[in-house]
Amino acid sequence: MTDPTGKGVKTLGLKIGSELHAQFTLVAQLDGISLNDAALRAVELYVTTKRQEPDFAQRATAALEEIQREAEARAGAIQSLFGTDPAEVAEAKPQTTRGRKTAAAE
Results as ranks from 00 to 15, higher is better:
T2K: 14
T2N: 13
D3G: 05
D3T: 11
D3L: 00
P4D: 04
T5E: 08
G6A: 07
K7I: 06
K7L: 10
K7R: 13
K7N: 09
G8V: 04
G8Y: 04
G8F: 04
V9C: 04
V9M: 11
V9F: 02
K10Y: 03
T11M: 07
T11G: 02
T11E: 09
L12S: 01
L12D: 01
G13D: 07
G13E: 15
L14R: 01
K15R: 15
I16E: 04
G17E: 08
G17N: 01
S18V: 13
L20H: 08
H21C: 08
A22C: 05
Q23F: 06
T25D: 15
T25S: 15
L26E: 14
L26K: 14
V27H: 06
A28E: 11
A28H: 12
A28Y: 09
Q29C: 06
L30H: 14
L30W: 05
L30K: 14
D31C: 13
D31S: 13
G32Q: 13
I33A: 07
S34A: 03
L35N: 13
N36G: 01
D37M: 07
A38C: 05
A39Y: 00
A39M: 08
A39R: 02
L40S: 01
L40E: 02
R41Q: 07
A42P: 02
V43F: 08
V43H: 00
V43A: 02
V43T: 04
L45F: 10
L45T: 07
Y46W: 09
V47W: 11
V47C: 14
V47N: 06
T48E: 15
T48V: 10
T48Y: 09
T49S: 13
T49A: 11
K50A: 13
R51W: 12
R51A: 08
R51G: 03
Q52F: 08
E53T: 09
P54S: 10
D55L: 11
D55Y: 13
F56Y: 15
A57D: 08
A57W: 05
Q58K: 13
Q58E: 15
R59S: 02
A60E: 05
T61G: 01
A62L: 12
A63C: 00
E66N: 10
E66T: 09
I67A: 09
I67P: 02
Q68H: 12
Q68K: 11
E72C: 05
E72S: 14
A73F: 10
R74F: 08
R74W: 03
R74T: 10
A75I: 04
A75F: 07
A75C: 03
A75W: 04
A75G: 04
G76L: 12
G76I: 00
A77Y: 06
A77D: 05
A77P: 00
I78C: 04
I78A: 03
Q79W: 00
S80T: 10
L81C: 05
L81T: 09
F82M: 00
F82S: 01
F82I: 01
F82Q: 01
G83Y: 05
T84H: 01
T84M: 10
T84G: 06
D85I: 03
E88F: 02
E88P: 00
A90L: 14
A90T: 07
E91G: 00
E91N: 11
A92W: 12
Q95P: 03
T96S: 08
T97C: 13
T97L: 13
T97Y: 14
R98W: 09
G99A: 14
G99R: 10
R100E: 13
R100T: 09
T102Q: 11
